[in-house]
Design a protein around this nucleic acid. Structure first.
Lengths: 121, 121, 121, 121
DNA sequence: GTGGTCTAGACCACC
DNA sequence: GTGGTCTAGACCACC
């Protein structure tokens, strides 16, 4: 678990932490039964206040992705029935976000392909 | 000029406005000499306070993209020498951001191609 | 009479005009009996609204430096008894302003002399 | 940190604050790691609204001179590579401004030297 | 009308 | 407490 927080980002620190861990779980790098680092340890690594990590863990728990057991740490929960659907939905959303930005910048289909190196063949 | 602000976003309203206009200028949809809507008009369209739009216009002016003339409105300035470089840099950044997210979600090269419909052939 | 106005300056346009003309009179480049350019002409040269020049002329008139005659233009008035005193006072003020800035920037007496090329001999 | 704002000046309050702090940093009176007074405290000392000081701090941050950390104050950043160049440039600019004004007032080289007391010896 | 600045007062994330 | 953002409302210089 290696998290770097950008304190200048408009995205609040606790949300940056939530996003990194959420992606790690959905991407399978954190699996059912894995233990998350203790709040104070992650806080020290990410150079934020323990309260900030605590809030992030709380959000992930409310989403059903992790489970905190007082006195024994926080753990990754088993995948729900629609985790795969969510994973695909997030990929599509990320792709659309990229496309929108590229088009807003005035690039056409061809230029996008060329500059992102995807005309391999 | 059609801007919708998400008040729930962690990105502050003034920054959302800056980003939309910056992309429109870099993408060529707003050109040298075009006039931006008056602060109060855009504020009313985007449902924010005039001060918020004013701050966004001020940031764009400090970036050299627009120019405000008291009493007569705000205008798009001629492109600087490295606007094209900036445009390409932003495209690459957006692409890398997408790739990072897709990989964090655990998709491999093939899956990414398939789901974003780019192996047409 | 050649005036360039910086519209981005925090000093309002009418004040910039006043200052240039005041210095020209005190410095002797505009003398008793000389005629100032018509308001509309100076406005067009300086690219400002005629009202702005009008206000500047009004201020100079209230200071006793010029005199407007409706229908026949504006004229430089004869020097008052203490114009020489004022001239010296403005020089001293300008010098003190420079010294204050140089010292605020952390330069000592020697460096100031060296960098402003005044240890000739 | 002792700042007096002239509310009658054409230079806006936030800019007066920026200029004082910028000079203090470039002149070395505020050094890397020094803490600026809290926004609300300086606002009270200078008798302006906290927002006005906040805008000044924001400008200094965008210039790279200071850094604000939410919850823990604002700090002087380490000098960039060209701070010395900037310092000299500002001195030269101030000197040229003085010279221009003295000459506009009709003083010649000799008179300037005599009245600013710099031909001592 | 138009941009620019300011005050008073509020709420937020984080310490 | 501390910086950051925002609204409501005001006034200014200039058009």
């Amino acid at each position: 678990m290696n998290i770097t927080i950008d304190p200048a980002s408009p995205v609040p620190a606790y949300l940056q932490i939530v996003q990194v861990i959420r992606l790690a779980i959905l991407g399978g790098r954190l699996k059912e039964g894995d233990q998350l680092p203790p709040i104070r340890e992650l806080a020290s690594l990410a150079k934020v206040n323990p309260n900030t990590v605590g809030r992030a863990y709380g959000d992930l728990e409310r989403e059903g992705l992790i489970e905190g057991r007082v006195g024994s740490g926080s753990w990754i929960r088993p995948p729900g029935e629609n985790r795969e659907t969510l994973r695909r939905k997030l990929l599509t959303a990320a792709w659309n976000e990229f496309l929108a930005k590229a088009q807003a910048l005035g690039f056409n289909q061809d230029e996008i392909h060329r500059l992102t190196g995807r005309n391999e063949r």
